[in-house]
Structures are given as structure tokens and as C-alpha cells.
Nucleic acid binder design. Structure first.
Lengths: 193, 193, 193, 193
DNA sequence: AATGAATGAGACTTCATTCAT
DNA sequence: GATGAATGAAGTCTCATTCAT
């Protein structure tokens, strides 16, 4: 299995660094190879093409992140706590890995439709976790019974995404993780007094 | 003033169409020129370079939209109504102009950091309108007095943006404008029962 | 019409020279452009891709050659004279244009199936001229009435082609045109005493 | 002697199959190795480089074929019969081995000058057999005493080669061997009535 | 003897921009 | 003001060959 060989991860980590430092469009395969310490051709022993590096990067980094969120939220006793956990993990994951945050929030969005489609496939797993929490919250009587799940999921994801993107663009000048509580409060209680 | 000459608007409208139909990366200057009915070189009499077409497109299309939102919201009697109006106008503006929605929600995001920075400049005016409504709502006692304005603005913009993007990606299969009420309710009241 | 613009012919002539001098595989587009005195990109204003240069080269050089053979043979009074004329013209055409001979006899045959298929299309016109002469010769009672036309055409073309190829590979060390008579005699009378 | 080890022939037979199936340019060393059931590196224990595989292929397959033609023709009583035998064997050899025919008539011709030069070395043996028959035929008074041997040899080889190539390109849709008589008649008697 | 992972050179094509007319 | 022919820089990927095991 190629995914378990050391060079596979080496190349992906190099890609994150190179893209974060140079931007999406200035990240040539040769630059990634150099940073990974392999020859250009070696890249193609592990990835079909350049796009495949980026898709794999997203799958690798986000895939197991989604797994961990699923596991950690399942251990919480109610939907509200699960939601809080999800927000905290979402923020801390990216706050602790600035390069990855730059890549996912800014650079990877410059990709073409094809790549974004594949990225969305990965994200579906995350959105499903949110949906699950919402359904549970309704059953538990914590959340409003007539919530439009799809819409709420869009609100939650849109909010988290926008908050992180703003944080990335301000270049780490403030603490992202400490905003989790306020965001959780806003999402659950809204603006009203 | 170049902006008032007919070819200026002709080129911008051609750009919207070409990008919506072909996608960002397949939208060459020559294609835009052809659709606009001018020679390639003529483009450069009205715009400094390709990026300038896109920035101007955003300024032109969003600039006066922001003006109209400002005007319309100011006529409402309280912050809650103003917020509702902003959401409705945001949705209807894009629902009524699918090509423009495709361009702003999907295609223009593939642009590089530079261009997005300039697009953000234009958006600042919009965000300021939201901030104003929020402050007013707090003063009026409608919104929670300790709201973190910047964070709330990110929640609102992130939510609207994500909802519209999802609608665009589903290719108009459902009615966007009719979701305004539910979104307004969610933002003001949150998930809680 | 692109084919009548001076750069079209300039590029084709440059291609013949470059391929004859460097060989098929070492003939980069940039080399052809340089020899033609145009920028690399200009090539693509006149040809779809590299293969199109080669196909056009063959069409251009052979196409009107076939026309001229058709015209000249038609003026001869009988099939035997027509055949002699065809052989003489075939040899003199290539003997007088060594670079072109190298390209058609040696270098262009290294091309892939696709290109050779297109070259064969052009050759069909030539083979049709041969067929016509053969039919006429039979009607005139000059050639054997039961000739298998297709087979004879293959003999004639195979012979001419092999003779020219041998001449090219010997690098012009002997006179090709003066062999026309002997070849004509062989084809019409065979080996027998 | 490497040539007598089983892997040597294994690799050559694999090369014929791979080239016939995939075409010259899509026949990578790794594909040949896979078909032969050996590792890529093993190829280089038996052959100096890729070109050496192809040259050896030609030597191996054509070399003993030429031997057999020499033997069989020598048993015939006169030059005319020898020529007929040569034509029959040339056709039947390739008609009975379609893959080999595809490789020698079509694919191997895409090789570069160097390789073709070496192939021609092998062919020289075949051409010498033809020359011998021609000289004998003149001595026997069967063939015209003033034949230009080199030219006649080119006619014969060019004819046989073109006939086989046409047969290969038509993909075996007709019987090649049965054409031997007609070809023999044409070569010995020419077109004349 | 056999393996197969790793290497790295090399070229076609696109397209934003210019400038002579 | 308008044209459009010409420019030329720049990057992905393939595949023959090597060499440590």
C-alpha cells in the first residue's frame, strides 16, 4: 500500500509547506519534489498527477481529522456538548497547523472545478457528522424541532469556515481557539437578547 | 471617464457571461473580447490587464448593490427588520442573476491572492453595513449587548455565503429567496428550542 | 486563407530543413520556429500542433507534385510513355530536392500511426494516377490484359520507393534520374531474357 | 552464451507481442519485462539497452529465416524456380506470423536512423541471396544479360516489401501467399503484353 | 542472477500583452 | 480610437537506465 510508505507522507507534507509558502499557482511539482527530498519522477510513483497530490493531501489531512471529530463527539453526552466539541476541534486543528490552514482556507480554493468536486466529496463526511449532531439535538429536545437540517448545517459550516478564513488572513494575530465558546453561543442562541 | 463609455460595460458583461459559461480558467481575454464584440487590443484601452477586468467586474456589480442595500435597510425601522432586508436582498440579488452568482460564488474564488485581496476591499463596504446594523440592534436593545461584532458579522456573512454557494452548486434546483426567513430566524434565535 | 500567407510556407520550408538536418526526433518546434524566423507561438497561429506541421508539409509538397504528374502524364500519347514520365518525374522531383527526399523517405516514416495514416491519404491520390495509367495501358493493348491492377501498382510504387530510399541512404553518391530508363524497362519487361 | 538462455528468447518473444499489440512508441521496457515475466532490471542482464532488444529481435527472427531461404532456394534447379521459392517463403513467413509482420513492416520502421542502419545490416544477408539468384539467372541465360543487379534487387525487395505492407495494413483480409505466383510473373515478365 | 524503486532530462503548447497600422 | 498578428516565458510528465539489496 503506497499510502503507508514513508515517501507518500513526505511528499504530502512537502506539498503543504510549499503551497503555504509560495501559493497555489507558484507551487510547481519540481518545488514539491525538492522540498520532499526526492526526484521529480518519484512523485509520479506515488501520485497519478499533480491534482492527485492535492486531493490526497486533503483526504489524508482531513480524512483522519473527521474520524477524530466523530470519535470525540460521540463520547459527549448530549448534542450541545457535541457541537461545542466539534467547534473547538475545528478551530484547534487549524490553529495548531497554520500552514495547513493557509492551504485549506486560501490556496486550495484556487483549484479548478474538478479538484473542488473531489474536495467536496471528502467534506461530505464532515457535513454528515454535523447533520447527525443536529438530528440528535432535536430528538433530545435541545434544538428546535422544526430546524431545516440542511440549512443549519450550512450556517454552521459557513460560520466556522468564515471565522477560520478571517483568522488566517489576519495572519495569526489573535487566538482562534478562544473564540470557540462565543461561536458556540452564537450558533445556539442567535443574536437576540 | 472610461467607466461611462459603452464598451466598458460591454466588456464587463461579456466577462460575466464568458466566465459563467466556461469557468474561470478557460476564460481567455480573447474570448471575452469576442463576446464583447471588440478586438483583443481594445480591452487594454479600458482595462490595465486581465485582473483589472475582474476587479472592475466585482466593483461594478457589487458596488452599486451595496449602495442599494444600504439605502433599503436604512428605511427599515429597526435592526431586526434591517437584517431581514439585507438577507432577502442578498439572496434575491444572486437568485435573479444566476450567471453573476456562478461567477462570484465559484469562479472568482479561483483567482490568486492578489485579486482576492482586492475583492475583499469591495466587500469591506458590505461588511460595514452589517456592522452598522449590529451596533444599532444592540443600542435598540434587540440584540445581545455583549456580542462580539466582528465575530457575528463573520457568522452572518459566512452563513449567507455558504447558503448561496450551496444553491449555486445545486444548479438552481430549489428556491433560494424563500429561504431568507428561515435563515433570518436561525441567525437571530440560534438552534435552541 | 492561412495557406497563402507567407509565414505558412516559411514555416513548412523551415521544417523540411530542420528535419533533414537534425532528424525527426531531434526536430523541436522551437528549432523550426527559429529557422523560420518567427516566435514559437507564431507556429500555432498557422498549425494546430506539431503533427499538423508535418501533415501540412506532406500535403503541400506532395499535393501539388501529384497534380503536376497528373497534368504531365496526361499529355503523353500512350500508357507506356505516361509510365515513363511518372517514373522520371518521381525521381527528378526528389533528386532535385535532397532535403525533401530525406524527410519523405527516412524521417517522416518514424512518425506514429496517426500521422502515417494521414500521409497515406495524400498518397492515395498518387496511387490513383498509377492505376489510371495501368487501366489505360490495358485498354490500349500495351499491357497484359489480366494484370492485377492493385498488385502492379504495389510493384511500381514499392520499386520507386525502394530505389529512392537506397539513393538517399547512399547520400547522393550517384545519379538517380539516369536510372529512370532502366527502372522503366524492368517494370515493363521484367527480368526475362 | 546469453543467446541460448531461456530468458533471452522469452524477452524477445515478449517484445514482438508487446510491440504488435501496443505499437512501437507505447512499448516501454517495463511492459516488455512484465510480459516476459521478469523484472525491469533483468532485461539489462541480457541486452545492452532498449535498442539492443529490437536489433536482436530482428537478428533472431530474420537471421535464421534468411538461412532457411538460402538452403531452400539452393535446392531448386534454376534461378527462376529459386526466385519463385524466395517470394513464396517471404510471403508465407510473414503471413504465418502476423504479429511479427506488424512489427517488421510497420512498427520497427518508426525507429530512428541508428536502429534502422543496424536492421539494414541484417537485411544485407537477404539482399545477397537475391543478388546471387540474379547472377545465376543471367549465367543460365534465363535473365537478361545486361540487368543492373543492384537495381533489380531493389525492385524485387521493394515490391515484396510493399505487397506485404499493404497486406498487413488491410489486416489479413485476403490471402497473401496466393499472390506469390502473380508477383513472380510480374517480376519476371513485366507489364507488357 | 534477479529485483524494482528511484532517478532526472527534455519539449509542446497556451495566452496575456504589445504595437505597427 | 480600434485592430489583431505576433510574441515568448514557463511547467507537467514519461520512461530508459541504474544500483543497492
Amino acid at each position: 500500500m503506497k499510502k503507508n510508505k514513508p515517501k507518500y507522507k513526505q511528499i504530502i507534507d512537502a506539498a503543504v509547506e510549499v503551497i503555504a509558502e509560495n501559493g497555489y499557482h507558484a507551487s510547481q511539482v519540481s518545488k514539491i519534489a525538492k522540498k520532499a527530498g526526492v526526484a521529480d519522477g518519484t512523485i509520479y510513483l506515488y501520485f497519478r498527477n499533480k491534482e492527485d497530490i492535492l486531493v490526497s493531501l486533503f483526504q489524508e489531512k482531513m480524512g483522519n481529522f473527521i474520524e477524530r471529530i466523530k470519535e470525540d463527539t460521540e463520547q459527549k453526552s448530549n448534542a450541545d456538548e457535541k457541537l461545542r466539541t466539534l467547534i473547538e476541534m475545528h478551530f484547534s486543528r487549524l490553529a495548531n497547523n497554520y500552514h495547513l490552514a493557509v492551504v485549506t482556507q486560501l490556496e486550495l480554493r484556487q483549484s479548478n472545478k474538478d479538484l473542488r468536486q473531489k474536495i467536496n466529496e471528502v467534506l461530505k463526511g464532515y457535513l454528515a457528522v454535523i447533520d447527525e449532531i443536529l438530528k440528535e439535538g432535536i430528538e433530545e429536545g435541545l434544538f428546535h424541532p422544526e430546524l431545516n437540517i440542511k440549512l443549519v448545517r450550512q450556517m454552521i459550516f459557513g460560520t466556522l469556515d468564515e471565522v477560520v478564513t478571517n483568522w488566517v488572513m489576519k495572519e495569526e494575530k489573535y487566538d482562534l481557539i478562544s473564540q470557540a465558546d462565543a461561536v458556540h453561543y452564537l450558533i445556539t442562541n442567535g443574536l437576540k437578547k
